[in-house]
Structure formats: structure tokens, C-alpha cells
């Protein structure tokens, strides 16, 4: 057994989970799919004394459509997001991103909620959450509260969720009329962590000019990055090739990626520009299809 010893509990209610977290103190961790936490523990980079498993809590495995939004329970897996027809209809970007997450066997266990709470800077979901203005619900000893993605991701593997709180649901707003979104990433081999990934979101006005836009990146720093300046730069302009190319390059220039064993900072910046251009182009095409329909 590679992890250090710990105690395990699997409450059957969210209240039970919070109670166990409060009881255990700062040294407890919530266990969802375990696909990030258990490897860290196997390498003894993490040594929680208590694991509180949310896998036995009723109702956390739901995917619901609420108005224009998709609400995803904390234990919904990446695999489910990739195949659920309601996800494809209401939040198609989630269905598009799911196959980029690791390999099939990991997607069968790992969860959207767990990935957001874990906040790996090379993971897909934090970047997608920032892009789509996702809101998570967390529950703690004093009740439930909502945290917007913009306020959630603090730094490397760190979020603003308190140690005695548990993420219970992820609300993904619909794109609205004349909206389109896209995601792409570059990795050395299928299923590896991406060197860089990017998502783009575009809304067009009645004349086909840009009403709003944003780009987000992963793999370029200690946490995912949202670039809203792209929106300001594109607003009111027709989203032609030249405009997209210009804002994509500018967005990449604003990043501060790192050198590591896998890629230099300069290479990452080039990938970011390419991916921003590609995803903006696709997002515009999708938004235009909405305008046409």
C-alpha cells in the first residue's frame, strides 16, 4: 500500500459529509472519483488523515436542466458528460471537452466537481469553468453558498473552497442566442496532460458583429487563465480572420507561461496563440450558424 494510513468514511448525505469534515479538521480531504487525489497520495505528495467519500451520497450523480442552465452533480463523471444527450443539448462544450480528459478508464471514475475542486493548472475543466462563467455550490457547516468560477481558482491545486466545505453541484449557464463556444488542446500523446489548451466563447449581435467574447487557457501558469480583453478588443467588429488572428496573438502575448521539461515558455505562448485562433474561429462559426438558424 503506497498511501500513508488514513481513516475513511462514506456518509450517505451532504450533511453527513460536512459533519465528517468538521469533525476531522483541516487534515481531511473529500474523495470523489479519486483520479487526481489517489495518485497524489500514492506518491505521498498528499497525506490526509481522513478521506470523506461523497460517492454514497444520494442525488449527487444527477444532471439536470434548470431553465437555460445545466446543473451537474458532484459525482457526475467525465464519461457521463461525454455521452449524456442532455449535456450535448444544453452545454455542448462540456460534451466536446470530456474526451480530452485523460483516458477512458480515468473518465469512467473522475468527476467534473472533483476536477474543479482539485484545480490542476493543466486540467481542462477549470479553464472551461472560467470561460462559461460556471457557478459551483458548496456546502459547509453554516449552509450552502455559491462561488463563481472567477472567484474559485486561487492558485496551484488551491481553491477558495474551505476545508470544511464540500462542492455539491456545478451550474453551467447556457450560451444564449447567437452564442458559440469551442475548445482545443495540444498534448504529446492522446490522453496526456495538455501542454496548452484553450477555450473560446463568442456571442454575435444581429448584424453578425461580436457582442461579447472571451478566451481561456490551461497549462500556462499556476492556474487556468481567463482573458476577457479579447472581448473588449473584438466588440463591435466583424469577427473576420484578421481580427481573430490579431486578438489571439495579443491574448497569447499577455500570458506568462513557464519553461519546463515538456516545453519552453516561448513554445507554450505560440501554442496559446494558435489554439486561441482556432477556437475563436470555431466559436464564431458556431455562433454564426445560430444567427443563420
Amino acid at each position: 500500500m503506497k498511501p500513508a494510513p488514513f481513516a475513511y468514511v462514506a456518509p450517505d448525505s451532504v450533511e453527513g459529509v460536512v459533519g465528517a469534515l468538521v469533525e476531522a479538521g483541516d487534515d481531511a480531504k473529500v474523495l470523489a472519483g479519486g483520479q487526481s487525489l489517489l495518485p497524489l497520495m500514492a506518491l505521498r505528495l498528499g497525506r490526509p488523515s481522513v478521506l470523506v467519500d461523497v460517492g454514497r451520497v444520494d442525488g449527487l450523480d444527477r444532471v439536470e436542466v434548470v431553465g437555460d442552465d445545466l446543473v451537474v452533480g458532484a459525482t457526475v463523471t467525465h464519461a457521463r458528460l461525454g455521452r449524456d444527450p442532455e449535456v450535448a443539448r444544453v452545454a455542448p462544450l462540456l460534451a466536446e471537452v470530456a474526451p480530452f480528459v485523460a483516458h477512458a478508464a480515468v473518465r469512467n471514475r473522475g468527476t467534473l466537481g472533483g476536477s474543479l475542486a482539485h484545480n490542476d493548472p493543466a486540467a481542462e475543466w477549470p479553464a472551461v469553468a472560467l470561460l462559461l462563467d460556471v457557478v459551483v455550490t458548496v456546502q459547509g457547516p453554516t449552509g450552502a453558498r455559491e462561488i463563481a468560477a472567477a472567484d474559485l481558482f486561487e492558485s496551484y491545486l488551491t481553491t477558495t473552497i474551505e476545508p470544511d466545505e464540500v462542492l455539491t453541484a456545478v451550474r453551467v449557464p447556457g450560451l444564449g442566442p447567437r452564442g458559440g463556444a469551442a475548445f482545443d488542446e495540444v498534448s504529446r500523446r492522446a490522453g496526456d496532460f495538455a501542454l496548452v489548451g484553450a477555450g473560446a466563447r463568442v456571442t454575435l449581435d444581429d448584424d453578425g458583429a461580436v457582442a461579447s467574447a472571451a478566451v481561456s487557457f490551461l497549462g500556462v501558469g499556476s492556474t487556468a487563465v481567463l482573458d476577457a480583453t479579447v472581448g473588449a478588443d473584438l466588440a463591435g467588429r466583424p469577427p473576420d480572420e484578421a481580427a481573430i488572428d490579431e486578438v489571439a496573438r495579443a491574448a497569447a502575448a499577455r500570458l506568462d507561461p513557464h519553461d519546463d521539461l515538456h516545453a519552453t515558455a516561448a513554445y507554450r505562448r505560440r501554442l496559446a496563440a494558435t489554439l486561441a485562433r482556432r477556437t475563436l474561429t470555431t466559436a464564431v462559426a458556431r455562433a454564426s450558424a445560430e444567427v443563420a438558424s
Binding site: Q35, L38, A42, L43, A105, V106, N108
Partner: peptide, 23 residues
């Protein structure tokens, strides 16, 4: 033993999972 190699893959309720990444 940390989810990279796939040799420990088993079927859990019919779908493949890494048995080293599951308690």
C-alpha cells in the same frame, strides 16, 4: 500504481477503471 500504465485495468459494473486508483 498511480494511474499511468493501465495494466491494473478491471471492469467495474461493466466499464474499465484503474484498480490502483480506486480504494
Amino acid at each position: 500504481e498511480h494511474g499511468v500504465c493501465g495494466s491494473c485495468t478491471v471492469l467495474l459494473d461493466g466499464v474499465p477503471v484503474r484498480s490502483c486508483l480506486m480504494l
